[in-house]
């Protein structure tokens, strides 16, 4: 590894360990005040493990050939993924979906369900930037930054227009948590695909990203319409987990899969 790669690795280890370590410590400290493990928290734990497995699998199969051939580089990009996921979740702390405050401290089941989709969504967006051959780690940071940044910006738009963050964190509407978790996964997959491919130059990458991420914009528009339609009201809370959560969530995921299938491989 070159000196800049070692520096990036140390930075990633520090960020990932600090963020995830603090959450884990807090969770363990407050665990005694929970009577049982809620299904929502179990879903989040499973999602975290699956996200790690998903990232490993994508790196092992589709990353640059020199990454796939080296345990050190595989570890480097896995740790960087943990750091990116952690930073993305910290950023969301300020935008209405808080791992620390809502999931761990307030034991909010709707937030746990949302975060169970947020983490795989961030992972898919990050993983896309790793796919294909490129000259160095900074290319991964650039491409992943586009995808992850786009995903977070999409959430900002969605939340500002529909106040979904409040629906999840104050109303504790679990169906909204499932829908938003699905939106993060569906959009993360499209933006990850938009950032994937062999590196040519910045201009080419931006053009590719802009073209393919149109699907994410379409999905955002559809989700906005859906959310305005089923926005919870006092007389109609729209909180049926299957009808208002799982079914719309599956539809979003299917649309994303169809779109990705249309574009095929990078």
């Amino acid at each position: 590894m070159s000196p800049d790669e070692i520096l990036a690795l140390i930075g990633s280890v520090f960020i990932a360990a600090t963020i995830w370590g603090r959450w884990l410590f807090l969770k363990l400290n407050l665990k005694r005040f929970s009577a049982t493990s809620s299904p929502e928290n179990i879903a989040l734990s499973v999602s975290l493990v699956l996200s790690g497995g998903l990232l490993f699998s994508l790196l092992a199969n589709y990353a640059s050939h020199d990454v796939r051939a080296s345990d050190v580089y595989m570890t480097f990009y896995l740790v960087m993924g943990a750091a990116v996921d952690g930073l993305g979740a910290v950023f969301l702390d300020w935008l209405g979906l808080s791992m620390r405050d809502d999931v761990i401290e307030r034991r909010n089941p709707a937030s746990a369900l949302a975060l169970a989709g947020v983490i795989p969504g961030l992972t898919l967006a990050y993983a896309g930037g790793n796919i294909g051959d490129g000259p160095g780690w900074w290319v991964v940071v650039f491409c992943s930054g586009l995808a992850v940044g786009g995903l977070l910006f999409g959430w900002l738009v969605l939340d500002r227009i529909t106040h979904l963050g409040e629906t999840i964190s104050i109303e504790r509407n679990r169906a909204a948590g499932v829908r938003i978790g699905a939106w993060f996964m569906a959009t993360g997959a499209i933006l990850g695909r938009a950032a994937a491919g062999n590196w040519i130059n910045v201009r080419h990458t931006l053009a590719d990203f802009g073209r393919i991420s149109l699907g994410a914009i379409g999905l955002l528009g559809l989700t906005l319409a859906l959310e305005i339609w089923i926005r919870p009201r006092v007389d109609h809370p729209h909180d049926h987990l299957v009808r208002h959560g799982l079914i719309p969530g599956i539809i979003l995921l299917c649309l994303s899969a169809l779109y990705l299938n249309h574009y095929g491989r990078w």
Binding site: D101, D102, N108, E166, S169, E171, R172, P232, V234
Partner: peptide
């Protein structure tokens, strides 16, 4: 913060 309390809808 508002997140520390149940929503008005929940209370109602």
């Amino acid at each position: 913060l508002p997140q520390d309390f149940p929503s008005g809808g929940r209370l109602r």
